[in-house]
Design a protein around this nucleic acid. Structure first.
Length: 409
DNA sequence: AACGCGGACAACCGCTGGCTA
DNA sequence: ATAGCCAGCGGTTGTCCGCGT
């Protein structure tokens, strides 16, 4: 099993590709496409196995490959993505146009790992080396953090042979004690803004654009430089309250820890990349949730034909659908609790929105909010909140569908 | 100049899962 | 239901090249 029939054939060349071979393969694929890879070598006149041809094409000959060394931005992005995805090189590569999984893997193993270690960061866990050596953080069970969620399943093991336990995002600046403290103070009584609140705000922000048809909460808009961990999805429970997955469930495995009461939709984006949408089937809260991903609204369609169309909701290809995706350890302290709908702290959000509370624009500080680090209420800037409410044109058709779905909830 | 070493990159290998007959 | 084919993925190995001794 696993071995390609072509691999048994004799006289197949191995090793480095000659320029002549490259030319043959390039000409063939340019002219006819690759079709079935196993037939490519024969048709192209190459004494290689189809697998080798495929690899050569993907890693070297493909016209849309970006050449040259990685920029610092790319490196940073790889580190951030790795923190979320682990060694899922192909998924990481998917977020770096023009880069291959092989290239990224090599970079990681040869360069980035070393750099991280030099900075005192464990490349596997993305935690400070000292902390890693001291043992793994105990993962709190759901019941540790919430009351009345006994029906929730415990964290599931990761599937497959992924040797990495997916690292849990943890700010190096935060001590274990601080984490414990924030975990203890996490909000059982959190009251969050309602869906209507967001919708109203969004409508007010885009009065001229039928904007209520859209629901583009872009919660990743804090800063392009911040970690992927900050791409928190917004969940609304059946009471239309914003539901904080991480705070209320401490769930790392979305597929196993969806709250039974929530018939929800999650809207998220991967940084400035694809908006991501998930919804949960109302009557199958635990395992029946659907996951939908909107195509890339920016429509930077690649030359290959299998790129997302950008117009259809799709059911795969985002790290969010991965059972190993770990939700950020978001913890809101008492000071961060937001209450709406005539409740005493109503003013808070409106104050933010009106700028009465001076917003911090220090995005690094903001990042701490999402790590559950020490937070101040006014760190939550109005500018950031406004940036969630992206104009519809930035999201395109996808969100029209999303909003339709949302309205049905 | 010769040698050894290490880094960077290219390619291979083994495995998995989807698809289809 | 099952077996075979295939694409894709991630780990590993091989190769090249620059640098220091």
């Amino acid at each position: 099993m696993g071995k390609h029939s072509c691999c048994y054939k004799q006289k197949l060349r191995k090793g480095l590709w000659s320029p002549e071979e490259d030319e043959k393969l390039l000409k063939h694929i340019t002219k006819y496409g690759h079709g079935c890879w196993s037939s490519v070598p024969k048709l192209a006149g190459l004494q290689r196995c189809g697998k080798s041809c495929r690899l050569r094409w993907i890693n070297y000959l493909r016209p849309d490959l970006k050449r040259g060394s990685f920029s610092q931005q790319e490196e940073n992005l790889i580190i951030e993505l790795h923190a979320v995805l682990g060694n899922r090189w192909s998924q990481i590569a998917g977020q770096l146009p023009g880069r291959t999984d092989n290239e990224i893997k090599n970079l990681w193993n040869s360069c980035i790992k070393k750099k991280l270690r030099q900075r005192g960061i464990d490349p596997n866990t993305h935690k400070p080396l000292s902390e890693t050596q001291g043992g793994e953080d105990k993962a709190l069970t759901i019941s540790d953090k919430t009351s009345g969620s006994s029906e929730l399943k415990p964290r599931a093991p990761t599937s497959g042979n992924l040797n990495s336990t997916v690292p849990e995002p943890a700010p190096p600046s935060m001590s274990v004690a601080e984490k414990n403290q924030t975990e203890k103070s996490s909000s059982k009584n959190l009251v969050a803004p309602t869906k209507d609140f967001f919708l109203d705000r969004f409508a007010a922000s885009h009065e001229s654009s039928n904007s209520v048809d859209y629901f583009p909460f872009r919660n990743s808009a804090y800063s392009p430089n911040l970690s992927m961990h900050q791409n928190l999805p917004l969940w609304f429970n059946q009471n239309s309250r914003l539901f904080n997955m991480s705070t209320e469930l401490n769930c790392n495995m979305i597929s196993t820890a969806v709250p039974s009461g929530s018939k929800s939709i999650v809207i998220s984006t991967s940084m400035d990349l694809k908006p991501t949408v998930m919804s949960i089937a109302e009557d199958e809260p635990l395992q029946g949730f659907q996951y939908l991903e909107a195509g890339n609204s920016s429509n930077n369609s690649a030359s290959s034909g299998n790129a997302s169309s950008g117009t259809e909701l799709q059911s795969n290809n985002s790290f969010f659908d991965s059972s190993i995706f770990q939700w950020p350890d978001l913890v809101l302290n008492k000071e961060d609790q937001i209450q709406l709908g005539g409740e005493p702290e109503d003013l808070k959000w409106s104050e933010y929105l009106n700028g009465a509370i001076s917003p911090s624009t220090d995005f690094q500080n903001q990042s701490q909010l999402f790590y559950g680090a020490v937070k101040e209420a006014n760190q939550f800037s109005i500018d950031e909140f406004r940036s969630w409410l992206q104009p519809p044109e930035l999201f395109g058709k996808d969100f029209q569908k999303i909003s339709t779905t949302f309205k049905q909830i």
